[in-house]
Design a binder for these strands. Structure first.
Lengths: 266, 266
DNA sequence: TATAATTCGG
DNA sequence: CCGAATTATA
């Protein structure tokens, strides 16, 4: 028996909006720790890790560990039927092959339940080791989203270079090149406007903008995004979910190539 | 000679927006009573009845009963050319085969007239008997629209079940099932937020969501919608038009089928 | 053409 | 936070 009651239902709505374009189907794992998900994107290039800790739920009952396979677009469709300040309860029976989402309107006058069939998805659950990063950039999530969107009008990849002065986002495309430099500035009025760089050594890595733009779909979840970079390691783009946990996106850097495009097999 | 002056021209604009997708062409009937229309939708499944009483017009002159056949998309096109707070006057000569819509801007600085050819449409005007209904549900029109839209993401039909506790809207589709229950609540701050159920006996009927969603195009005309249900009778979905009349939509319930789809001719 | 998604204003 | 309007898309 599983019953998770989330007062701020809009959180779950936003979570699904932020991952449904990247991952088509995934197992949601529920244990005493919380409600979590780990999944590769459809082309097995990026990885999403979601954690909503049990403490963040108003009521959290999970009698035994359970893994529920869902088609994320279908789940997102159902969650769209919840109002933005509805209370959402996720329910499942232990033996069952369905999950039920219950939406209560704030005044309790409207109660909806949506039942969805679960599916079997086999997925290897990767242990993601905590790593030391050469550089960690904290910046306003909206600014990061804007930069990725802007750069993708020029090129397909972004080079993120961190020095202790700031972080530079660069791209190059047919019509020209672009560089956007953000200076470290911890001394702003609001802490969420700060750009803070923790750097052990300078680092410069290249990523596909297509994935970065997918990650920024999570922008509504947090004012701040944290970007952790190390040579040879996937970048981690993390959005903290207030009081509950996080969504983290992992993406391997592109290997530096010569000027010419190198096509496999040519 | 016909001359109907409507101070709140936006009413007529909204009326046409709400029926032009359902009905392609129809006769507008004008008599001393008012300006009215009765028409089947293009697939002859649903029926629209509109009444704008003469008292609601600032000036109402209708020398003899007249029936004016119009292509509703064309009429809607012309009305879109009226400003939202223009005064609209509908004019026609007795022998003529045209109708003229005149739009006066509030400050009288702009006066437009649009003339449209009438057409001959033969339509049997059905007498719709006043009926007793097993259940009448009054609820906020926006909430009803939201429910129909949400349910149509899951299924094609809605089962509306009324008990004295409340009204339940249910559907079933490939990805799952959905039930939305609205409790009767007369004790809200604003009367237009109330959900009021007048029930003689419980009733449960099935309708095509496609038509329901068409009907809810009339939502901008009224805060409240009234849904009248009886077994064997078409449901009536009514939007009152302030001070003037109503738009009513009629739709026959689907006959309950077995679990299997029954295809005609198979 | 109709609906969905997005943005803006109340 | 909801509703309106606009834009994008199927």
């Amino acid at each position: 028996m599983l019953e998770l009651r989330l007062l701020q239902g809009s959180l779950l709505k936003k979570v699904l909006e932020s991952i449904k374009d990247l991952v088509t189907e995934a197992n949601f794992d529920c244990s005493a720790t919380g409600f979590s998900l780990q999944a590769m994107d459809s082309s097995h290039v990026a990885l999403v890790a979601l954690l909503l800790r049990s403490e963040g739920f108003e009521h959290f009952r999970c009698d035994r560990n359970i893994s529920m396979g869902m088609k994320l677009v279908n789940m997102a469709m159902m969650l769209k039927c919840a109002g933005n300040d509805d209370i959402i309860t996720i329910k499942a029976d232990d033996g069952g092959d369905t999950v039920t989402f219950m939406f209560e309107s704030p005044n309790q006058d409207k109660i909806a339940d949506f039942e969805m069939k679960l599916m079997n998805i086999d997925s290897e659950h990767l242990g993601i080791p905590e790593a030391e990063y050469q550089a960690i950039v904290r910046m306003p999530s909206s600014e990061f989203a804007r930069i990725c969107k802007d750069l993708s009008t020029i090129g397909d990849t972004v080079i993120i270079s961190v020095t202790k002065e700031g972080v530079k986002f660069s791209t190059k495309g047919d019509i020209g090149t672009a560089n956007i430099v953000c200076r470290q500035n911890a001394t702003v009025d609001k802490p969420e406007d700060a750009i803070i760089i923790e750097m052990k050594e300078p680092v410069s890595l290249t990523f596909a903008l297509r994935y970065m733009n997918s990650f920024t779909k999570a922008t509504p979840l947090a004012n701040i995004v944290t970007i952790s970079l190390s040579s040879e390691l996937p970048v981690v783009v993390e959005y903290k979910i207030a009081e509950m946990g996080y969504i983290r996106f992992y993406l391997a850097p592109k290997i530096e190539e010569d000027e010419e495009d190198t096509k496999p097999g040519v």
